[in-house]
Design a protein around this nucleic acid. Structure first.
Lengths: 205, 205
DNA sequence: ATATTTGTTAACCAATTGGTTAAACTATAC
DNA sequence: GTATAGTTTAACCAATTGGTTAACAAATAT
């Protein structure tokens, strides 16, 4: 009896499928390649997941429910905006070291088929801006931060944190740096990004 | 004799290929679909472009050489950092209205095959950070802007400008807004983003 | 006018791909 | 032990896909 998830056949399938789908995308992935990487027969793939689409959906949901809580953190806890930004930036960039393909994968597949996001909306604790909006409005009113729309601040936060991991090769080419130097830049960003944002919204209006 | 590019067969092919490739990506695109959209026979596609890869490369190079000058603007002209940020933000967000699929397309395909970027490095005026780095260092020294690495500032600028167009459906879902409201947000960003950046780098160190 | 090059098509082909089938192997139930 | 249900495989299948061929039409050259 296997106790670790990766030792069960289904675990191996999901792990292999995750790797192949995240590397190649839904369209580029091949069932045969997933079977090979899982060390099993292709027919067995269809035994566990009747179709490529079903397997893909399982992988996508897994990925999405890893990412969603990261965003919910910033939106729904009770700390100040400033603390949220600091924590989110630090957490997210740390999290990215473990799952570097995740944002590319999710963003690409949602662009390919925007309906996927509807299927997600009920499943996990789907991120929601309502609370964050009230908090921003409130801190703007008390003068803790300068006037800004919650939506714009939210976009800025996720953009600054996520974008480098979506456009890694492009940035590396423009900045003319190797993997090591890029990793170093990302390490610096754990504090750099939060400082950048806070500096911007803390000044006089 | 056709004078407009779109009236020649090759023009129709490139236009159709651009649309299909940008919607579906290299892997998801079908030669038959491109032929249909161009209103021609599939064999004629292979008459003009021997293979799918060659056709794709033509489309990709076109797309890239539309985007590259946008970045070069900010890197290689002689205005101040502040003016560069203002101009770039305004220009880029305006440019995006005309080519909304462009950044998704380029980023996805470069992730799929990072070697593509090597092929681009010689072709067009490939963006280069050298001049920008000197300028940032100089303005930091004179105290015009607070201390920041040119690479980090560059990443921040492109992230804030490009990311919303790469992750549109995701942002729309999180912020719970429709196309119209999203477009409105992007319109606001034409000044919002530049203000946000400048506010951040102009404060006391 | 007519030969020749260029542009266009319908029909075809080989390879790939997602998916199925029927048999075999393995563990579990009785 | 043996029936039974669950797991795994090799071989197969139909559809799709990128690409080709050979014939035909339209310019262009001579």
């Amino acid at each position: 009896m296997p106790d670790k998830k990766e030792d069960t056949t289904e675990g191996q399938i999901l792990e292999a499928a995750k790797n192949v789908f995240q590397r190649k995308g839904m369209d580029g992935a091949r069932m045969q390649e997933i079977a090979n990487e899982a060390g099993i027969n292709k027919a067995l793939l269809h035994y566990y997941y009747r179709s490529k689409e079903m397997l893909f959906e399982a992988v996508f949901k897994n990925a999405f429910s890893l990412l969603a809580p990261q965003l919910n953190g910033i939106l729904n806890d009770d700390s100040s905006i400033e603390d949220k930004i600091k924590n989110f930036t630090l957490n997210y960039l740390t999290f990215m070291n473990k799952h570097p393909y995740l944002p590319k994968f999710i963003i690409h597949e949602i662009n390919r088929n925007p309906d996927f996001i509807l299927k997600m909306k009920d499943v996990t604790g789907f991120p929601n801006l309502d609370k964050f909006k009230k908090q921003v409005a409130s801190e703007v009113e008390t003068g803790t931060i300068k006037p800004i729309k919650a939506e714009q601040l939210f976009i800025n936060i996720v953009a600054l944190n996520i974008f480098p991991f979506v456009a890694t090769p492009l940035i590396q080419a423009f900045a003319n740096i190797d993997d090591q130097a890029f990793k170093q830049l990302m390490e610096e960003r754990k504090t750099e990004v939060a400082d950048f944002i806070i500096h911007s919204i803390k000044g006089m209006p």
